[in-house]
Nucleic acid binder design. Sequence first.
DNA 1: AAATAACCGAGACGGTACGTCCCGTCTTCGC
DNA 2: GCGAAGACGGGACGTACCGTCTCGGTTATTT
Lengths: 183, 183, 183, 183
Amino acid sequence: MAREKTRRKVHDAVLSLAAGSRVSTITMEGIAGRAGVSKQTLYRSWSSTGAILFDALLARSTDAAGRVAVPDSGDIRDDLLLLATGMIAELTDPAQEGLLRRVTAELQADEDLALEYRETLLEPQLGAIAHRLDRAGVPAPDDVAELFVGAIFHRWLLRSRPFDPEWVENHVDRALTLAGSVS
Amino acid sequence: MAREKTRRKVHDAVLSLAAGSRVSTITMEGIAGRAGVSKQTLYRSWSSTGAILFDALLARSTDAAGRVAVPDSGDIRDDLLLLATGMIAELTDPAQEGLLRRVTAELQADEDLALEYRETLLEPQLGAIAHRLDRAGVPAPDDVAELFVGAIFHRWLLRSRPFDPEWVENHVDRALTLAGSVS
Amino acid sequence: MAREKTRRKVHDAVLSLAAGSRVSTITMEGIAGRAGVSKQTLYRSWSSTGAILFDALLARSTDAAGRVAVPDSGDIRDDLLLLATGMIAELTDPAQEGLLRRVTAELQADEDLALEYRETLLEPQLGAIAHRLDRAGVPAPDDVAELFVGAIFHRWLLRSRPFDPEWVENHVDRALTLAGSVS
Amino acid sequence: MAREKTRRKVHDAVLSLAAGSRVSTITMEGIAGRAGVSKQTLYRSWSSTGAILFDALLARSTDAAGRVAVPDSGDIRDDLLLLATGMIAELTDPAQEGLLRRVTAELQADEDLALEYRETLLEPQLGAIAHRLDRAGVPAPDDVAELFVGAIFHRWLLRSRPFDPEWVENHVDRALTLAGSVS
DNA sequence: AAATAACCGAGACGGTACGTCCCGTCTTCGC
DNA sequence: GCGAAGACGGGACGTACCGTCTCGGTTATTT
């Protein structure tokens, strides 16, 4: 509904606010003010602050049309390493981390946003990993993909331990172990 | 600082509010009103709504002194099954789920609360599981414990898939597979 | 800034509250509630409870544009009697007395309100009296006007003695005595 | 009821608070804290903040037992000048002005305090002046005393004009004019 | 080109909750 | 056993946002 120009102004405002202060203080009024847009215009296109932040995140990741780029080097271990590294890079990117945490928080109370999140981000991501595992002959690829992503996400969300490269390698190896005799 | 009587009134109020309406609408004022307590009394003992909810959850889980009861049947597979089942039961308990989601959401923006959460709940839980795995001879027990818990938590937090008993069994088996040749 | 409709609602609320209970218990929240207006709307237009009460008093006195009606019978003694009687009537009017006392109290701590009070109410009143005295040839009319008003105000503010008609006459005569040989 | 030591501590606290910040922000809690006295102790001896401030003012003026020192030079004009000058000095004394304004404000809503004020301060003051005028043969000395004091008080309370020495002299002369042919 | 509609900025508005300050009372605990 | 220290229920403060609602002043279309 919103004109493309408006959406861009709003996304820019969100990113600039996210860079300049705690993401948890971003509000509809703040976005409207920064974007030079009236609150009514925001409400016409988005149902909540969380929805705007999510939209801004999406717009940031999907410049081209092709969503999640799945690496395909031929070697499953290399691919998993790339996937893990890429995911960690995104989660800890200073320009995104705050927004991701805020959106994850809002998912807990907003079923609609949660649904959109799953369909738009989560499923493609898990699907891509499962697909890659499947091609490599790993049994129960969906479950292993969940295991693979779940541990990384858990560590990030609860800030339980830092991500160090050695752990990532071991994490990949553990995932591959589950593939049984797969090389 | 707060008297024991006050704390109990507050915890009761939180649980009754959590049972009666969406947890995301619980406020300091609402708790104060329900508990028959002044706002100042709340702020004297807790720094935020999240801190109160967390405290109420804690008080609910820790009646006796001994935290997380670690099952010890002698059989590692049985123990992991019990652990997983218990964790899922807690996460999906109608009396707790909303509170847990709200607290998890607030952790994202509240570093102090996050620290307390890790020290009080997360580490004991992961530690207990790791300890059990260690005793069974599983290598890298901390990482495997994280993997084990992470997948369950991920599925719950993002509501990606329901918990069915068959999956739980497979999940346990996958964890044991990582133990290598361990029986 | 505030719409005319809002101002009227607020003034009505103030007068109804002033009539129904002790003026010293009137609060911003009470006015907002009675007027069916949000607190923010009050703060947008007035800086304090005192400012609202003062505004309500003003709106009550200044229906037409012409402020203080100065009597002009041709006879200075009659005029002063009318002025004194009118002033006393206003000060002791049950619908106003409480508000006037409250406003006078707040003037003591609120320099801005005090300034507005002087410019809007006090100076026109004193000026009108002084002007009348001046026309009658009284020397130092400003000082005599202050004397004239000051005694009435002092008696009212400190409730030292009731206003009886005989005293008013003598008060007028004393003021005229200061005019020397003026008839 | 309060022990003398306590009263002194409280009075000192009031004066120090009055010197250090706006008198309108003085509170029971603030006095208790500064005086190193519990709130309960304050409430045992005084019914309101206003009562404490009034008491502190009184204690300040009445070191010796003899209240208002009435000058008696033999010359009524000199005496009135001294009285006016003394009154103005007191009203504008930086250590007292704020307290006096605060107390005057509280009088408007607190009948008990108002009564005490009249009996303890106002009547002795007016009486002393009236007595002096009476001795000089001035007719209606009470009314003239009120006129004399009322104008000064009015000018102070509403801050309408500064007190300059010339005005004081004229003010005294005007009061004497009312004495008719009295020398 | 003028008339007319759609849109949008600005922000007032009724509300709810925030976090703080005091009130006046009650409880605890140390000297 | 008195009194400081301060917890407590309560009420108001002044502020921040919420989501809705009018306003005018462009823009764009339609005639």
